[in-house]
Design a binder for these strands. Structure first.
Length: 433
DNA sequence: GCCCTCGGATACAATACGTC
DNA sequence: GACGTATTGTATCCGAGGGC
């Protein structure tokens, strides 16, 4: 019984010393330093047992444990003057005893954990996407150098799954549902959501080249969705669709059999699937204006009560940062405008929230699709008209807005940003009637 | 989605150690 | 014993994960 307690104390002492060792420079450098890891019993979690006046045997057991460890050459103990075998001064972990200390405690050496985690990341070094490759290389290097990597060393399987997902991303089809991905990779439809999604999102927020808004925006950009999404369109847009599902195998003959559609005929607008957008080609845009709308409620309102923009008006719902298939449609439209230069088209507008996110989405659309994009009802006058119904925002948003003031290309937004910072309120487009 | 807890990372001050 | 360096201790921040 007593021997068992001595063993328990030995394990606890070694565990504490190993923790200190793993935090020391000696561990990071991989070579013993000048100072050994050390601790005082009185300053440790063993102090309570060591000073237990109701049961002095505990101190004896701790002394016995230390005596055995010293005898084995794993530790060394110093005693203050005149207190030999009465009160321990310091306990040192001998570097040559580290390996045996791990054996005693049954803990996995931190060096092994780091090495195994680093090996997991090796396949990322050949990843086709720069930003994943860079992260993989940098994290691998940090692990090799035993520097803090931000990874949980005890979750080997979790990072194995993450790497598997990262490697699968470039080959994913757009709009791949989470559960389909999970089933395909892990033969378990929920494992992605339960064990990988959070970690992937946290990584994407850190390393994805664009700053997006919501978690689902980040997942969508790498091809993962909860469920496939539709792109909502209303107004004069004339497209052609192949008569049969032809995809990449379409011949010129098939294409010749294509059907034409004019969206104007659909008074409530239409929803286009990713597959349809992939297949369609644009025949004409007989609109005088195009309006991109950030918010779903506003999109439906605009259909029911057309806004005061040049009619006929083509309306496209972007849903915040547009998802991949909406982006594909926007690309087709922008290419059509660029190459065909439709005569009737007088302007392209975007209507979003008057806040940090709204401004960033506008600039994203402008940069990637429509260089001549103009804001609609996102000006100072509209803001001041509705600011009383606005929602307050905190310090974090203020800092982000202040940062926008320093970025090139945001000069036209300075008056709006100044007002946003002055009132500390954001105006959602649903509140604008 | 929010809140709470826990653990790891980091910075900095205090302390101990090694060398001369 | 003085000084420079390494280690330890402490406070704080941040992200992950779990519970609701």
């Amino acid at each position: 019984m007593a021997q068992k307690s001595v063993d328990q104390y030995k394990r606890r002492i070694l565990s504490l010393l190993l923790k200190k060792y793993e935090r020391s420079q000696s561990f990071q450098a991989g070579i013993p330093g000048k100072q050994r890891p050390q601790m005082t019993i009185k300053g440790s979690e063993l102090a309570k047992d060591y000073d237990d006046e109701m049961d002095y045997r505990k101190r004896e057991l701790i002394h016995n444990a230390l005596q055995e460890l010293c005898h084995e050459g794993i530790t060394e103990v110093t005693w203050p003057k005149h207190k030999e075998n009465i009160e321990v001064g310091k306990v040192y972990l001998n570097f040559e005893g580290v390996e045996r200390a791990y054996l005693h405690t049954g803990e996995k050496p931190k060096g092994d954990k780091i090495r195994q985690l680093a090996e997991l990341l090796i396949p990322l070094v050949h990843h086709p996407w720069d930003w994943v490759r860079t992260w993989g290389e940098e994290t691998y290097r940090r692990l090799e150098e035993r520097r803090p990597s931000g990874l949980d060393l005890d979750d080997h399987q979790g990072y194995g799954d993450l790497v598997q997902v990262l490697l699968a991303l470039p080959g994913l089809e757009e709009n791949t549902p989470k559960r389909v991905l999970s089933q395909k990779l892990f033969q378990d439809s929920k494992r992605f959501e339960q064990g990988v999604e959070r970690r992937l999102l946290s990584l994407l927020r850190k390393i994805y080249p664009e700053e997006l808004e919501k978690d689902e925006d980040y997942l969508d950009q790498v091809g993962i969705v909860e469920n496939p999404k539709m792109t909502l369109v209303f107004g004069p847009l004339e497209i052609e669709m192949p008569t049969e599902l032809v995809g990449n195998s379409a011949t010129e003959e098939d294409r010749a059999k294509s059907l034409g559609f004019n969206f104007r005929a659909f008074q409530g607008g239409l929803g286009l699937s990713a597959e349809s957008i992939k297949e369609l080609s644009i025949r004409d845009i007989p609109a005088r204006a195009i309006l991109l709308v950030e918010n779903l409620t506003t999109y439906h309102e605009v259909i029911r009560h057309p806004v005061q923009l040049s009619a006929p008006l083509l309306v496209i719902y972007t849903g915040g940062f547009p998802h991949k298939s909406t982006q594909r449609l926007l690309k087709k439209i922008s290419t059509f405008i660029e190459t065909q230069n439709p005569l009737s088209l007088e302007g392209i507008y975007h209507w979003g929230d008057i806040d940090y996110g709204g401004i960033r989405i506008f600039e994203y659309l402008k940069e990637h699709f429509f260089p001549s994009l103009r804001p609609y009802r996102m000006d100072v006058v509209t803001y001041l008209d509705y600011v009383t119904t606005g929602l307050s925002f905190g310090e974090e948003q203020c800092l982000k807005l202040e940062q926008l003031l320093t970025l090139p290309g945001y000069e036209t937004w300075h008056p709006v940003i100044t007002e946003l910072l002055r009132h500390r309120k954001r105006v959602e487009q649903e509140s604008i009637r």
